[in-house]
Amino acid sequence: MTASQIHRPGTAEHLLDVRNLKVCFQVSDRAVRAVDGVDFHVKPAECVGVVGESGSGKSTLIRAISRLMPNLRVSELSGDLRFEGRDILGMSERDIRALRRSQGFSMIFQDPLGYLNPTHRVGRQIAEALSPHSKGESDSQRVHSLLEEVGFSDPKSVAHSFPHELSGGMRQRVMIAIALASDPKLLFADEPTTALDATVQLQVLQTLYRIHKERNMAVVIITHDLGVVAELCDRVYVMQTGKVVETAGTVDLFERPKHSYSARLIELSAHRINFRSAGL
């Protein structure tokens, strides 16, 4: 166990504090423990990475936290989950929706096309997600400034387009704009650039990083690509079969991994490039 795991500062410092989260799915006649006693926290304005392979429970973890878990087949969901000290699991559906709507948390996903309505123009979909605001700025002005914030030089024409008219990278930018529309304090990004080309991935991550800094918004990024977290995140959780096997500052993790699984993941992503010379 590392020092950072034992030391647990008061909840007050944490934007998000999760203790002993357990999630169990009922699959035909047996129970599968997707998340098995995970402790997890995010400080305000921090960028946290969660890495692990498929089935490690990383997506389930943030879906449980953001209460985007279909009740169907969940046989157990327990733990102490707090967002700004408020109990997430005990919240009513209405309260949780209020939290998503304004200054709570937002999510972006791997496949933006699956989350955008193909029949509505982009601008309208961003406007729907806008947090309640005082008079002064019109909805369309706010939509345009959001589109500018995520890197579009011509927000007007983008707002007027349909999702299918945009490229993958542009769609992901639109998703980010929708996520930002509620002025979140925390953004969950589940494999946000996995479907994108390397050059586009770099641009989207640069944009995400800039927004994270400009807004002082905390970001939790879930990925299987260690290259993404290495430069982006302050701290990383490594998950394997539902458990956090290591958590450390990014530089510590990459330069002095303590758990053999983390070491193997890092080695694989670094040496895959020299796979042949490494004699694998």
Binding site: Q206, E231, V251, E255, I273
Partner: peptide, 17 residues
């Protein structure tokens, strides 16, 4: 150049763009 290598001291994402 666009490949993200697992280098925690890299500065490509963090560089001002």
């Amino acid at each position: 150049d666009a490949r993200l290598l697992p280098n925690p001291r890299g500065t490509r994402i963090r560089s001002p763009v």
